[in-house]
Nucleic acid binder design. Structure first.
Lengths: 197, 197, 197, 197
DNA sequence: TATGAATGAGAATTCATTCAT
DNA sequence: TATGAATGAATTCTCATTCAT
């Protein structure tokens, strides 16, 4: 039996990824040493480099997972069978909830992107762009349907909302007065209010 | 003649600060070496350590300058003699304009805060908090006056707007289609729209 | 069916040896990783360690093959039925031709010998010595026959010639103006000229 | 007083260079760690990287010194006021003597050149080429004067001789039967004998 | 005020080798 | 015969900071 798992049965690559995610979020990418990661994962450096080409690679994997997750959820909400207003509200609230539920990934996302190698950076930006475009298309659909104002450029509206999503990792505390769903509802509400004609 | 200035007449500490600001913004705090900073400023390491206690100190000075500037401007707009709606709109737009005009500082701000020593970090957070409170007070004033909705917590509204301000350094490009003032007007407009009762 | 051969029918050990020879020559022994060798040979590390005890072993095998080859050829030329002058000339030219035809082995030989384990190093030196002695005996035979000068120690003469042979891998280029045989004839000629009484 | 020297008064860079030269010659470039070098020189790693950009740089400096020395000596002998035969003999013997007197440098030279960065490698090759050309010009001068044979290409003659010079580090032992000058005289003699018309 | 040589701890990465299967 | 995950030690290099001058 290849020792791909350890005492707890979790495969080594996943253990490494989990440890890296937590540490990158807590201390930042640069402040986290490979040594810390492997210690937290309970393996040796050699094992890390057996599975990941570099520290940078590890960061990229964190991103890939988040990007995939968010894109899937947005697509599901956007393609739902409901009035555009509701679809926007649901999608806007959902991204808040999932961001709060994965605050570590979010911190990393908005703070460490520039640590990726140029090539991987471009790749992440491109996927990010796709996400942005999908959301913008939704806004424009509502605008054409006459339920949203067209006084503000749709791009700007998208960045407005996602700005607040990114910002969550700066101020949101699990032990604060508002739960994820409440925050999500409020932020989606602010967006919809701003979009009223 | 003490050589506090150089060919261009700019005092050494300011030259160092300018070089550090640019480099921190371009490469991040951790990726910027003290050596690079002193080379960019045209001085030697000894000089840097003569004026600043540490690399961390340099970062703190960057923050101090931005915080002071923004607080002053917010106070001025908030204390103006005008209807609360206008004061909120003006303040909200102004922070966008000055952020765009100092995008380097902004990048550093939202990306490198966690590199400060715990003590300085607390200090910056406290000043940041004062800023947030002042803005929130303005929102609540409008709310009491009945011109703003009270369906969303004021704190959340403030974070909503500042989220989009932080986000600017991620997407704003000087050579893009919108100038600073246009972006500012749109974003302030979105805020005011969301606040409509 | 044991998979000692692959698509091309070449047995695994030979494939490994060929890959190692090429890579050692191109990059040097230390710069070549075991991983590179097994990839070039299309096998895995386990296979390599099945056939060879260590990386060092692989190097030793390369030597063994060359040494055996050269000794056989020298013996053949030296034992031929011809005047000593001709036998020296033929042997001297032949070692040049075979060296040029195996330039990779030659590069390795003169650059990587010191990477062998002490024990294998001694062994190679001993075989090398035998080769040297055989050539020297030939020179002395000619000297006793009065066809070669005895103004220069025979050992030195041998080293003189083999120095130029070793040097071939430094300057000889297959696409240069001289073919292997031409170079060989010239170098043998230089040796014989020097040996004229 | 800056601590550029230590107990023995030798400046740090020179101490490093001396240690590196000895270790590279003894063990080869790849087998010598930076740690060993700084320990042998009695300084810390930081000091090494203060003076030299990389381990490769250190190797390049070793080369630069040898190349400069040999070129100067060749030029002096070649430009002397004497018959061409004598100038060739003197130059040929001198390179043997100085090579034996700096056998460490020579070992490094012919064994570690390929460890240089491509750029530095080209540079060393170019300087090496100049040396070769100078010697070749001398041979051709003698040929035109009718004192040397023209049956063998001059380039080949030069490589013939320098092959034996390179080879010295393989077999010459200070405690052997022949002193540097004797070896030099014999090897120069072999060259001149080969060149006889 | 300012220099720049020197430190020393720690960074990421590589690699030959082993071993359970 | 062969796999490939895992080890652990070693490698080169970086860097904030100090300090004698």
């Amino acid at each position: 039996m290849p020792r791909t798992t350890d005492g707890d049965g979790t495969p080594v690559p996943r253990r490494l990824l989990a440890a890296a995610t937590r540490l990158f979020a807590e201390q930042g990418y640069d402040r986290t040493s490979v040594q810390e990661i492997v210690e937290a994962a309970g393996v040796t450096k050699g094992a890390l480099y057996h599975y990941f080409g570099s520290k940078d690679d590890l960061l990229h994997e964190v991103y890939a997972r988040v990007l995939r997750l968010q894109q899937e959820r947005l697509d599901a909400f956007a393609d739902a069978d409901a009035p555009v207003e509701k679809r926007v509200r649901d999608a806007a609230a959902d991204v808040v909830v999932t961001t709060i539920e994965n605050l570590d990934d979010a911190s990393i996302f908005f703070r460490s992107m520039h640590h990726l190698s140029p090539e991987k950076y471009r790749q992440v930006r491109a996927e990010r762009r796709r996400y942005h475009e999908r959301f913008r298309a939704l806004i424009e659909e509502g605008r054409r349907a006459g339920v949203f104002t067209d006084e503000v450029p749709a791009d700007l509206v998208v960045d407005y909302h996602f700005g607040s999503v990114h910002h969550l990792s700066t101020w949101y505390r699990p032990d604060g007065p508002l739960g994820p769903q409440e925050v999500a509802d409020h932020l989606a509400d602010l967006l919809l209010r701003a979009l009223r004609p």
